[in-house]
Design a binder for these strands. Structure first.
Length: 614
RNA sequence: GGCCCCGUAGCUCAACUGGAUAGAGUACCUGACUACGAAUCAGGCGGUUACAAGUUCGAAUCUUGUCGGGGUCACCA
């Protein structure tokens, strides 16, 4: 977008020459002209009318004349209120198209020489992935693609929560109730198999809890700990966690198992390895289906002891403090936060300790300039605290930390609640969208020549294209409603709509191959819609840059739709292979090629693949 | 209750970070295939940007207050 910069510079010079005042060229605001007016780009004049001591109209005309005279690509102008609309030479757009066409990496920005680590997904190994993970995974994947395009080196990682009481629940449940069953003997996908025992644990615990509530012990607890007027039901709902920790037999067993795990008990460790392997096998299948992978994995079982040393170091430097009971804390009240515990009184670590250690380990491993954490917005406070602590510790990467916080995914019926069984399973979801794509594709019947495996590959591309677009088009930080019916729509602002624009172009290009004409297009004078499309194409690198800087894939999603929409209109209004003359045909082929390149590039940034036919 | 985020067409989302008459999709109504692919295109309907005040040339966007929704305030992760 160098020419935008040139315009700004010329505006600065013009103000000096015409009105004798000086500005910074950065103060000049240039927008794309709204489509109800003539012109391509618009200079906003309001900020300068005081200094110019004239009316917006006169300033606009003077400046417009100056720019038309001094910039060869400006062919004319019009002034509406305080807006100077600049009209561009057709040859300018034709040249721009040529330069996009000849670039084989259009949309990839120059290398920035920085390395960024992107953490996403990060599941627990006690149940399969669900819709919430899907939003996380798609955002993380897309963010890494966008950063790569923007010139960063990236490392995709996750922290796998493979230990702790939740994992022990599944393990214990399997040990008590499975009677040696395996995913194979049950014929169930292996991560779902593990999840089933997690659910079963909760069921058994509830049974145990209900029985306990009849006992005298429970009634004593109720009478002594309830709030005023609190009904039994409500009290016991609230009390469940305490029950688990203090009275439950299953709870005792699970906690005993956790302790054995920490002591490296061979039997427990073997069971743990087995069940985690089942999870990983299932997760990998899901990742593969979605089309994502990771460069390096971190496991909580390896990292949960990290960070202690830094806390001790921080303590000796006086950054942290120790209470009488030997627990270690940090005081962040100067930064508007609380006091936070970093090490328990018994010397064991907490979540925060671990995250400090993990960040340091990652930096030692990869020397990152930035680290992006894709984690739901319920952990915003945790990450502001973490980042503040890392700053206090003077970590070299601490200015490059970012919590890519995204809103929860709701269903039309409300929140997803695992207890109420309304959680949308990731594998089911993926299977549904692919199934829906099959139905739509078969209705259209343009794929009879496809083999079975080509067909299923196509359904996968279309179904996932619909799903991914549906989720990524929403601004990450906003909570979103996921309507399963709308997520499989293939018309309107959807992934398949964009894929369809691409497919149409491929079809035209295939036919053009047979004609094989070689015509120079530099003398072509583009139609309005053609110039508009080129303007859109020219803006693409800028969009990539902004999306990278704001970690926001939804910008790319919107861009892709707008470009596809313009192309569909162009395709409808103008003829390509049967154009008025060979010059127009050649130009429109070039334009189509460029559009298909940018569509494919932008959708690739979202993890959406383009079929050649559909 | 303290702090943080959000509130835009019936529904799902935009609005280049303070710029023009707030735009798309969907749903509903209408028109365009003996067209290079109709998963398309064109038109209609739909808004006091939750409400109120303020800041200025100009506010969905910034400030304050009210109402409504969510999150978070563990020696859990």
């Amino acid at each position: 977008m160098k020419f935008i910069h040139n315009i700004k510079e010329k505006v600065k010079i013009a103000f000096g020459e015409l009105y004798n005042f000086d500005i910074d060229s950065k103060e000049v605001l240039i927008n794309e002209t709204r489509k109800e007016f003539d012109g391509s780009y618009t200079v906003v004049l309001f900020p300068f009318i005081k200094k110019a001591k004239t009316s917006p109209q006169e300033l606009g005309v003077k400046l417009g004349e100056y720019l038309t005279d001094h910039l060869d690509f400006v062919s004319g102008f019009n002034v509406v209120k305080g807006f100077l609309n600049l009209e561009f030479e057709g040859s300018f757009w034709v040249e721009k198209l040529q330069s996009i066409l000849s670039s084989d990496s259009y949309g990839n920005l120059p290398q920035k020489g920085e390395k960024v680590l992107v953490e996403f997904s990060s599941p627990n190994t006690n149940k399969p992935l669900h819709l919430g993970h899907i939003r996380n995974i798609l955002l993380g994947w897309s963010t890494h693609k966008i950063l790569e395009a923007a010139g960063y080196k990236t490392i995709k990682t996750q922290i796998i929560n493979d230990r702790g009481i939740a994992v022990c629940k599944s393990m214990l449940s399997w040990q008590l109730f499975a009677d040696g069953a395996t995913p194979k003997t049950k014929g169930v996908k292996s991560d779902h198999f593990v999840g089933d025992y997690y659910v079963l644990f909760d069921k058994k615990l509830n049974e145990e809890y209900s029985k306990w509530q009849q006992k005298e012990e429970a009634i004593d607890v109720y009478n002594s700990s309830r709030k005023e007027n609190e009904a039994k039901e409500i009290f016991f709902k609230r009390y469940k966690n305490t029950y688990f920790n203090e009275f439950s037999d299953l709870g005792k067993q699970a906690k005993a198992m956790l302790i054995k795990w920490e002591r490296n008990d061979e039997k427990v460790r073997n069971l743990w390895t087995q069940m985690n392997d089942w999870c990983y096998e299932g997760f990998d299948a899901t990742y593969k289906k979605i089309g994502v992978d990771f460069d390096i994995l971190y496991y909580e079982s390896d990292t949960y002891l990290l960070g202690k040393k830094s806390v001790e170091d921080g303590l000796s430097k006086g950054l942290f403090y120790k209470k009488e009971d030997e627990s270690i804390w940090v005081d962040l009240e100067d930064s508007g936060m609380d006091q936070k515990i970093l090490l328990r009184s018994d010397g064991t670590s907490v979540y925060m300790t671990q995250d400090i250690g993990t960040a340091q380990k990652r930096n030692e491993d990869h020397h990152c300039d930035k680290m992006i954490y894709v984690v739901g917005d319920e952990q915003e406070y945790h990450f502001s605290v973490l980042f503040e602590i890392l700053k206090k510790l003077d970590e070299p990467y601490s200015d490059g930390l970012f919590h890519l916080s995204y809103g929860m995914v709701d269903l039309p019926t409300g929140k997803m609640k695992s207890r109420e069984g309304t959680v949308v399973d990731a594998d089911d979801l993926v299977a549904d969208v692919i199934g829906e794509a099959r139905v739509s594709a078969e209705e259209r019947g343009d794929i009879v020549s496809f083999t079975e495996s080509e067909k299923s590959e196509l359904y996968r591309k279309i179904g996932l294209g619909a799903l991914k677009y549906f989720i990524l088009k929403v601004d990450p930080k906003k909570r979103m409603v996921f309507d399963p019916k709308e997520s499989v729509d293939m018309q309107g602002q959807t992934g398949p709509y964009i894929q369809n624009a691409y497919v149409r172009i491929q079809s035209v290009l295939r036919k053009y191959q047979e004609l094989k004409k070689d015509i120079k297009t530099e003398n072509y004078n583009p139609e309005q819609i053609e110039a508009d499309i080129i303007q859109k194409l020219v803006n693409y690198p800028n969009e990539v840059d902004i999306a990278a800087a704001s970690y926001d894939p939804s910008r790319i999603a919107t861009y892709g739709f707008e470009l596809a929409k313009m192309y569909h209109k162009f395709y409808h209004d103008l003829r390509i292979l049967t154009a008025e003359n060979d010059l127009a045909m050649a130009f429109r082929i070039e334009l189509s090629k460029c559009v298909s390149k940018v569509l494919a590039h932008s959708m690739d940034l979202l993890g959406i693949e383009m079929p050649e036919r559909m």
